[in-house]
Amino acid sequence: MFLQFSHSELHLTRWFPATTTAILSFIAFCFQKGYAPSSVTSVISAISYLHKMHNLADPTATFVVRKLLHGVTKLRTSIDQRTPVTKSILHQLVHSTPHISDCYYHNVLTAAMYLLAFHAFLRIGEIAVTSTAQEVRSYR
C-alpha cells in the first residue's frame, strides 16, 4: 500500500528508506480513503519492521507519527458488527447443516457443536481442536 502511495501520490521513485513526512502523508491519505485504523497501523508496523531489519532509523517511531496514529484510532472507531446468537439464529444454523457437507455424520456433529456451544456458553476454541495434517492422516 505504501509503495503504491509513494509512486502515485508523492511521485517518488524510491520509497525506502521512508521519510517521516511520507509516513504522515500516507496516514492522512489512508484516513481520507476510509481505511480502518488497524489496517493503517499494520502497514506502519511493517514499514517500521523493514527499517529495523536494515538497521536504519525508524521514521514511524517519531512522536508526531504516533500521535497521528492515535488520533486516527480515536476519530474512526469501528463498531462491532457481530450480533449475539439468539435461539432463532441457532435454529437457522442447525437447519442449515445439510448444506455444509454431503456427509450426514459431519452434519450431525456440526449441529451438535452449535447446540453445545450455545447452551454451555462456549467459544469455538473451547470445543474445537485444530489438527495438523499428520494427525488427520493418522485417523484415516
Rank of each mutant, 00 (worst) to 15 (best):
H11W: 00
H11L: 09
R66F: 02
T130Q: 11
L109I: 11
R66Y: 05
S8V: 06
M53R: 13
S42V: 00
R123Y: 11
L122E: 09
F2K: 03
H95Y: 09
T83A: 08
S78C: 01
T77Y: 02
F29W: 15
I127H: 01
S6N: 07
T86C: 05
R137A: 10
T110R: 06
K87N: 12
A120K: 15
T62G: 11
L90Y: 04
M53H: 08
Q4Y: 07
V72E: 07
T132L: 05
I89Q: 11
K67R: 15
K52C: 07
H99Q: 13
S131E: 06
D80C: 10
V85H: 04
A22T: 05
I127S: 04
Y139M: 07
A133V: 12
A111W: 06
S138V: 04
T97R: 07
S88C: 05
A22C: 06
S48N: 10
A111D: 03
A128R: 03
G71A: 13
C30T: 07
P84I: 08
Q32D: 15
V64R: 09
T130W: 07
F26L: 06
K33T: 07
V72D: 06
P98G: 07
F2G: 01
P84G: 09
D102C: 01
S39K: 08
A61L: 07
I47P: 04
V72I: 10
V43Y: 00
T20W: 00
K87Y: 10
H7G: 00
Y35V: 01
H7K: 15
P98M: 05
L122K: 15
S78Y: 01
F2P: 02
V40C: 14
A112H: 05
C103W: 02
W15P: 00
D102R: 13
T21D: 14
E135R: 10
I127W: 03
I89G: 00
H54Q: 15
V129Y: 05
R82P: 01
L90M: 11
R140E: 09
S6W: 00
H91K: 15
L93K: 01
F121M: 12
L10Y: 03
D102V: 00
R137S: 10
H106V: 05
R137T: 08
T110G: 01
G34F: 07
N107A: 03
H106G: 02
L69W: 04
L69H: 02
A46T: 11
P84S: 08
S25G: 14
T73Y: 05
M1F: 04
A36L: 09
A46I: 03
Q4F: 06
F5C: 01
C30V: 02
F29T: 00
A36D: 08
T86Q: 06
Y114D: 03
R14G: 00
E126F: 00
P17T: 12
Y35N: 15
T110C: 14
H70V: 01
T20Y: 01
C103R: 13
D58M: 08
F63Y: 10
L10N: 03
I47F: 02
G34R: 09
R14E: 15
C103L: 05
Q92N: 11
M1A: 13
A18C: 08
S78K: 13
A61D: 15
S78D: 09
V65L: 05
G34V: 03
L10W: 03
T86V: 02
R82M: 05
D58A: 09
S88H: 09
S101F: 01
T19G: 12
W15L: 00
S48K: 12
A61M: 02
V72K: 01
V129Q: 11
R123I: 04
T19S: 15
I89S: 06
